[in-house]
Each structure stands twice: as C-alpha cells, then as structure tokens.
Simulated assay, not measured.
Amino acid sequence: MGYSISPRLALTCTEDMLTMVARLHRQQPDLWIQTHGAENPKEIKRVLDIYRAQDPSYRSYIAIYDRFGLLTDKSLFAHCVHIDDTDRVRLAAAGSAVAFCPDSNMFLGSGLFDLDAAWRYGVSVGLGSDIAGGTSYSPLYVLNQAYKVVAVRGGRLPALRGFYLATLGGARALSLDHHIGNFTVGKEADFTVLDFAAAPTLARRTEIAESFTERLFALMMPGDEQAVAATYILGRRVHERRPSA
C-alpha cells in the first residue's frame, strides 16, 4: 500500500502549502506527489498571474512546482497539455511522470497533449482517465481517445505502444513497475482477461484481422468495459462477466 500527497493544483495552493508538501516528501520520500499541471490556457494564465504577482521570475506552470522542489522521481503530473521543451527537459531530468488524460482533455476542450514530444525528451508517461473530467473508466475507451489525440497532432499511436501506456507504462510512471505492469515472474498478478468477441462489431473486426497487433488495435477502437471477461487481483478472480440471458 502506498500514499500520495495531492495538492489539488497550484491555483488552489499557497506558497506555504507547496513548501509544506515538499518538506513532507523530503521527510517521507516513499510518498507520491500527485497534482495537475498546465491543463488549459485559462488555468495557466490565472496561475501565472497569481504567482508572478509575488515573483515575476516564474517561467511556467511546471516551473512553479520545480521552484518548490516538487519535481521528484515520485511525482505525477496530470495533463501537461501546454508545456514546452524546457518543461519536458526538467520533468525528464527529475524522473517525474505525466498522466496522459485524453478523454478528459477532449471533453473539457483543454487541448491536445503532445505524446511524441514527451517521449522524445524521455518523459515517463502513463494513461489516465481523470474521471472527474473524463467520461469513462475504461482504459480501452481512453486508448481510443488517445489514438485520436495523437492522430490530430499528425502522429500515430500503434496498438502495442497504446497498451504499453495502459499497463507497464503506467506502472513505470508510478515507480511501481517492480510490482505490476506485466507478467514477469515475481510480480503481482493483477490483470484482466479481454474478450475479442465481446460485441458484434468487435468480433467482426478481430475476425478479419491479419495479425495480433491488428486484434489489439480493434480492442483500442470499439472496445470498452464490455470486453472485460474477468478480473484478477493477486492471481485470484474477483470478477467474471455473467453470460447474457
């Protein structure tokens, strides 16, 4: 079990609060720090207006967290839609991670996260639902949205890379990849069993697939929580889909 310090976002935090969060993390370095970063332009402007009124030298939203020592190898920043290369360099150097929340970003009209740029600079990225702003808990549905965000930016999100984001990539973003994320011997057996024929459209799409990666891509597109046939925690089945009547 682990615990996270979660200052809501810089907009709702005083400098004293951010200082306290950093101090608490130094005292308990096994704690995670989780907060928002650079989600939408109006938020960013408001944050910088507030902090620059106290110190005009604040360069960016991420730089505010950096100034207070909150960029650590246990820090996870949701969104980071509107960051620049300097921010990416600092996040990567600190070992901090980003939660890519495409469903939330699309729903709220926040912008398009630059996944390729994050990876190019070595930033650790995992997939996030941000259900407060998103519309689905399903990683498959969120992957569907992620594919579209990357495509609109002119890139591609292959199925294998997408499923990496939802599994081992997420585990690495949380520094939990020594416990979870894949089926390496000795890791905790937390996993779901997915049904390629859970719905007619999905069944048809996977039936004509010519490779396993095409089948995974089919899961990324029409797939959602209906495709989950069973769920296991520590190797014990805790959920199994009931047959249709």
Rank of each mutant, 00 (worst) to 15 (best):
S104R: 08
M106G: 03
M106W: 09
F107R: 15
F107H: 15
L108D: 11
S110D: 05
L112T: 00
D116A: 15
A117D: 13
A117F: 02
A117K: 08
A117Q: 10
W119D: 09
W119N: 08
Y121C: 06
S124I: 07
V125A: 01
G126K: 00
G128S: 14
G128Q: 08
G128F: 11
S129P: 12
D130G: 09
D130C: 12
D130S: 13
D130F: 11
D130A: 05
I131C: 09
I131N: 07
A132W: 07
G134K: 07
G134A: 04
G134V: 00
T135G: 12
T135Y: 15
S136N: 14
S136R: 09
S136T: 10
S136P: 00
S136G: 03
S138R: 00
P139G: 08
L140W: 00
L140C: 03
Y141Q: 13
Y141M: 11
Y141C: 06
V142G: 01
V142R: 04
N144Y: 14
N144T: 11
Q145N: 12
K148G: 10
K148E: 14
K148N: 13
V149S: 09
A151C: 07
G154C: 07
G154D: 05
G155C: 06
R156Y: 06
R156M: 12
R156C: 13
L157I: 08
L160R: 12
R161A: 13
Y164V: 05
Y164W: 09
L165V: 01
L165Y: 06
G169I: 02
G169C: 06
S175I: 02
L176W: 15
L176E: 14
I180W: 11
G181Y: 10
G181V: 03
N182D: 15
N182G: 13
N182Q: 07
N182K: 12
F183K: 00
T184W: 02
T184H: 08
V185I: 13
G186Q: 01
K187H: 08
K187F: 13
E188V: 14
T192P: 01
V193C: 04
V193P: 03
L194C: 09
D195Y: 06
F196S: 02
T201L: 15
R205L: 14
R205E: 11
R205T: 02
R205Y: 02
I208E: 10
A209K: 05
S211F: 13
E214W: 04
E214T: 00
R215N: 03
L216N: 01
